[in-house]
């Protein structure tokens, strides 16, 4: 019985953590390049809506996921244009993205409310899925969870072990140094902001195609913001971000565990937990001291211009 609670809790934590995982990996990449994109919430919503709508109209899940990523990437490109080309205020531009994403998805999505569409279903990975308990918990999930498993180490390897990753880190930390070595700062920032947006869209698609397979207005419910906090929590390291995402996922599914354990906490109080937990996490991770050592992007949010202040 308790074992059952455990496995259910862990596996639902992983499911709840997966959209956070994608969104925070995306934000991590954008921030590593020096662009602060506060619009994750908006991009996730556009992703969630687009994914659902495409699945509903075509029944093609792969197409749905790709479309979700592309739609969110378009919004991200807008932010990149504002931040990189116009050198506008990244905070305001990010907020604008939240409004726009939430507004457009709600606007176009209204006629999909209450509809049913093709959703992602679980499949057991041969061999691995047969391992007792672990197999059930980790390897009997939907395909996007597996993508999460693979993408994180891949991003880590990319960041720290490849030339392109090194360039990316340099652009976020010392753009003028990168520029002097022939790395195109603007292009790098565009690319990773857009890629980051695509990841946020993937996180959104996970919500509407797998986690709760339907479309509800503002269904991301602040996950985009939590993803931004996760990036800080992870000191811009994808592996820590992964652990953090699953941890946050665990917090947000705590209510099921407590329900099963028959601990009476009202549902609305329970729903506060992820947000309260996020605040608590921020209390412990907001110090400036560690950041430099771990290569936090010190040019984060600062537009680059070769001529400096002129």
């Amino acid at each position: 019985m308790t074992q059952n609670i455990m496995t259910t809790t862990i596996s639902s934590a992983i499911r709840a953590g997966t959209p956070l995982l994608f969104a925070s990996i995306g934000e991590l990449l954008a921030e590593r390049s020096g662009v602060l994109n506060l619009g994750v919430e908006g991009m996730m919503l556009i992703g969630a809506f687009t994914g659902f709508a495409v699945s509903y109209n075509t029944g093609n899940l792969l197409l749905a996921v790709v479309a979700a990523m592309a739609a969110a990437a378009v919004l991200a490109a807008l932010h990149a244009f504002m931040s990189v080309t116009l050198r506008a205020n990244q905070v305001v531009s990010g907020l604008a993205l939240v409004f726009l994403g939430s507004g457009l998805s709600g606007f176009w999505g209204q006629r999909y409310v209450g509809m049913q569409a093709q959703a992602l279903s679980n499949f057991s990975i041969p061999f691995l899925g047969k391992i007792p308990i672990v197999g059930e918990v980790l390897f009997n999930r939907d395909p996007l969870v597996y993508v999460g498993y693979i993408i994180v180490p891949l991003v880590w390897w990319f960041l720290y072990k490849t030339k392109a990753g090194m360039n990316l880190r340099a652009v976020g930390e010392a753009p003028s140094a990168a520029d002097a070595r022939g790395i195109n700062v603007s292009l790098t920032r565009y690319v990773y902001t857009i890629v980051g947006g695509a990841f946020a869209g993937l996180g959104g698609a996970y919500l509407s195609l797998a986690y709760t397979p339907m479309w509800v207005e503002n269904m991301s419910a602040g996950r985009g913001w939590i993803a931004i906090v996760l990036v800080i929590f992870a000191i811009w390291d994808p592996l820590i971000a992964m652990a953090g995402a699953y941890l946050f996922g665990g917090i947000s599914v705590l209510q099921f565990g407590l329900q099963v354990a028959q601990i009476p906490i009202p549902a609305n109080i329970m729903k506060m937990f992820p947000y309260l937990f996020t605040i608590i996490v921020m209390l412990f991770t907001s110090g400036e001291k560690m950041k430099k050592r771990f290569g936090a992007p010190s040019a984060l949010g600062v537009p680059y211009s070769r001529e400096g202040k002129m």
């Binding site: 116009l86 506008a88 305001v92 531009s93 604008a96 726009l100 994403g101 939430s102 507004g103």
Partner: peptide
Amino acid sequence: FSLVNAFQGLLLFSFVAGEA
């Protein structure tokens, strides 16, 4: 009604672009 949000997003974008 979400149109309001979309409009606000657009306004904010054009505001921030104009500001820059």
